[in-house]
């Protein structure tokens, strides 16, 4: 496999397709959701019309077990990031909530990332770039001049690739997110028509404080090896998501949730923007233009404990 083979024609090639289909899919999704909402409302309305007799005006659910109201929730959890380009993160975290009512809780989620704990998990793409970078041997390491110095590939990548590519990758070290949780849906789940557990679906939103390490800003001298070092900073971003809770008994449960934490970061430390129309072309510097929007997202599984151990029951 020759290195030359990977040199690409059409530098700065545009994405293959227009975004019209993305827009189309958005419209279709909106239409489907709207239809579903309308049908849902109709059904509920019909259902309400039929209520007569002693049940008229009765609550939809009686003797509801109030798992959250007046209780503290403590949930050790593990979160796995999704759709990572260069580096995956696993967060070991804890969620604390206090149920003001059964449908509203205030609390916080926080976690420490696998990169900070000393085991970064790189993707196959990172491995491939590192392998090719090693083959090119562009840089002087340990006093030895790289055999590839002066080649076209080395000149074109000197702002973007250090001698150790994984060391220049961004990582999410820690997160802390005060948040509000709403529980609009409560119910039960039957497994194989024989095992029944109480369950709920919740939504949450808050502000996330994220400890990020990504490539430091540099101007003019961004080809030097020490310009590829990463530095810590704190990003503040919105966070939101939804999850399911399945109650094992009165005071323990298991949960699964999806969380989004969108903010800008420089995933690979590449110079990707800063010059030309809309600053869409590389400018040789590493700065805010090169930190691009990323819709960071993760899946979490948790084990929840509720205190006091006894729950209330509604009328």
């Amino acid at each position: 496999m020759s290195t030359q083979a990977r040199i690409l024609r059409g530098q700065g090639q545009k994405p293959m397709k227009t975004t019209i289909f993305t827009k189309l899919s958005g419209h279709l999704l909106a239409t489907v959701l709207a239809m579903a909402a309308v049908l849902s409302v109709t059904e509920v309305a019909q259902a309400q019309v039929h209520v007569t007799g002693p049940l008229a005006g009765a609550p939809a659910v009686r003797k509801l077990r109030l798992y959250r109201e007046g209780r503290f929730e403590m949930s050790p959890n593990v979160s796995f990031t999704l759709l990572d380009e260069y580096r995956r993160n696993i967060f070991f975290g804890l969620r604390l909530n206090y149920g003001i009512t059964d449908w509203l809780a205030v609390g916080a989620w926080g976690g420490i990332g696998s990169s900070m704990m000393g085991f970064p998990i790189d993707t196959a793409l990172t491995g491939e770039i590192e392998r090719i970078n090693d083959e090119r041997n562009c840089r002087t390491t340990g006093g030895q001049t790289g055999s590839g110095q002066g080649t076209l590939e080395c000149k074109l990548t000197e702002v973007n690739l250090s001698s150790n590519f994984p060391n220049q990758l961004a990582s999410l070290d820690w997160m802390a997110a005060p948040q509000l949780t709403a529980v609009p849906f409560r119910g039960k789940l039957g497994l194989f028509n024989s095992v029944f557990v109480d369950a709920d679906l919740y939504l949450f939103a808050g502000a996330a404080f994220v400890g990020v390490r990504d490539r430091a800003d540099c101007e003019g001298e961004c080809t030097e090896d020490d310009s590829f070092e990463t530095v810590s900073r704190m990003a503040i971003a919105p966070t939101f998501g939804l999850g399911f809770t399945f109650y094992i008994n009165r005071w323990t449960a298991v949960g699964a949730e999806y969380r989004a934490v969108p903010f800008n970061l420089s995933s690979a430390g590449f110079d990707v923007a800063g010059r030309g129309q809309n600053s869409a072309f590389p400018d040789g510097d590493i700065d805010g233009h090169d930190r691009q929007f990323k819709f960071n997202q993760m899946l979490t599984i948790s084990f929840n404990m509720y205190l006091p151990m006894q729950n209330k029951v509604s009328e």
């Binding site: 309400q48 939809a60 659910v61 509801l64 849906f185 409560r186 119910g187 789940l189 029944f196 679906l201």
Partner: peptide, 12 residues
């Protein structure tokens, strides 16, 4: 698995 949810304590 099957089940039911009460939405906002109002409908199922």
């Amino acid at each position: 698995a099957s089940g039911k949810f009460a939405g906002f304590g109002n409908f199922i």
